[in-house]
């Protein structure tokens, strides 16, 4: 481990939820507006996980009122107060950008079943 990675460790959270692309997550985000703090839930499909160490981020996509919304979160951000896996998706690739082109029923992801 080099010194940059070592320093990165100090910025990282100790425990993280394990998830992969295709999973449906619900993320509790701390939002500060007009001097007040509140928690907003962002729920959608993980379409990408990239980076390593403190620089790791993931992208969540959801379709809100017919419009696709994507949000990128640094996985170790203190603004993320909680994460919950709602569904484990069965996909074959690590970046599921093809989901952007799909609408409605076609945009569903098969659920992974634990045998």
């Amino acid at each position: 481990m080099n010194k940059v990675q070592e320093y990165g460790k100090t910025q990282m959270k100790d425990e993280l939820l394990e998830f992969r692309a295709g999973d449906t997550l619900s993320v509790d985000v701390r939002i500060r507006e007009a001097g007040k703090e509140r928690i907003q839930k962002f729920e959608g499909v993980v379409i990408q996980i990239r980076g390593t160490g403190a620089d790791k981020t993931f992208t969540i996509r959801k379709v809100s009122q017919g419009i696709g919304v994507e949000r990128i979160f640094p996985i170790h951000s203190p603004s993320i107060l909680g994460m919950k896996k709602i569904k484990a998706g069965k996909v074959r690739r690590s970046k599921i950008f093809y989901l952007r082109k799909l609408r409605g029923k076609a945009a569903r992801i098969a659920e992974k079943r634990e045998n």
């Binding site: 010194k3 990165g8 640094p74 951000s77 603004s79």
Partner: peptide, 20 residues
């Protein structure tokens, strides 16, 4: 030494360079 990411307590994130 290289670059990485830094978080403030409020949750802001900055790119940082480490110098030894």
């Amino acid at each position: 030494l290289g670059m990485t990411r830094y978080f403030t307590e409020e949750g802001r994130s900055f790119p940082v360079t480490l110098v030894e």
